[in-house]
């Protein structure tokens, strides 16, 4: 059986002193023993999502509880996050997109906090999972599409009919636009999940090399470097996800090119 050969291979690896399990960190485990993962089982997903909720609560609610005119450090961060996302929504979607700001703020805060929590050694990175990112991307895709049809009716389809292009080209462009439109949720979700997974897996691989004494310093340096990069990626991917959501939302609000 495949598992037996793998087990044998693992034994051989362990014998050589090198242990690579870069993907083990992504395993979903029930929190309170057992193996079965039903839809309601509290798992490490639950734990780290719960921690994300607590972190957001601390960051945006507790830190602003004093409502100081001259903000404390925590309140500054909360105001900064608010201003950052608000300005992004306003800049990209325009004034009429501002009423969707809480939804985009929710997505952004969840992703950015989950990404950073995932950077804690030993943490479980919820945003590195396809199921999580796909649900969010599909939610954005469906919401935006339905909103487009709701606001503009059938004329929302003009999004694909680029009136600025020469007439003979328009059907071709419409086809390309249509394909790119439906690829959106795929790229939207896989971009985030892939970035998070790849970074964490690479760190694990470098960590595996640390078992060899000669390579250990290089390995430690490499982990530090990758970690620094991952700190950037953690923020940038949350930003990218949020700004793409804004761009899609703008298409739904103003489908005419």
């Amino acid at each position: 059986m495949a598992t037996e050969t793998q087990a044998a291979g693992q034994a051989a690896e362990e014998g050589a002193g090198l242990v690579f399990h870069p993907m083990d960190q992504f395993i979903v485990k029930p929190l309170f023993g057992g193996d079965a993962v039903a839809w309601y089982t509290p798992t490490n997903v639950t734990l780290w999502m719960g921690l994300a909720v607590l972190a957001i609560l601390a960051l945006l609610v507790l830190s602003t509880s004093r409502r100081a005119i001259v903000p404390s450090r925590g309140q500054s961060i909360a105001e900064l996050a608010y201003g950052f996302v608000y300005k992004m929504v306003e800049d990209v979607t325009g004034k009429d997109g501002v009423k969707y700001f809480p939804y985009i703020m929710t997505l952004f805060m969840f992703i950015v906090v989950a990404n950073f929590l995932g950077l804690i050694p030993g943490a479980f990175t919820t945003t590195s999972h396809l199921a999580v990112t796909v649900v969010m991307a599909l939610a954005v895709f469906l919401t935006v599409t339905l909103l487009g049809f709701y606001l503009h009716g059938i004329s929302f389809l003009k999004l694909f009919w680029i009136s600025a292009a020469p007439l003979p080209l328009r059907p071709v462009l419409a086809l390309i636009e249509l394909i790119s439109y439906f690829v959106r949720p795929v790229s939207h979700s896989i971009r985030l999940m892939g970035n998070m997974m790849a970074g964490h897996a690479v760190m694990k691989v470098f960590a595996g090399f640390a078992a060899i004494i000669a390579i250990a310093p290089v390995s430690v340096l490499a982990i530090s470097a990758i970690y620094a990069l991952e700190v950037l990626v953690a923020f940038i991917q949350a930003y990218v996800f949020a700004i793409l959501t804004c761009v899609y939302l703008k298409d739904a609000l103003h489908p005419y090119h």
Partner: peptide, 15 residues
């Protein structure tokens, strides 16, 4: 199903 369920719960709570 587990991840999706807890994600939805989390997002609703955050929202």
């Amino acid at each position: 199903p587990n991840q999706i369920f807890w994600l939805v719960v989390t997002l609703v709570v955050i929202f």
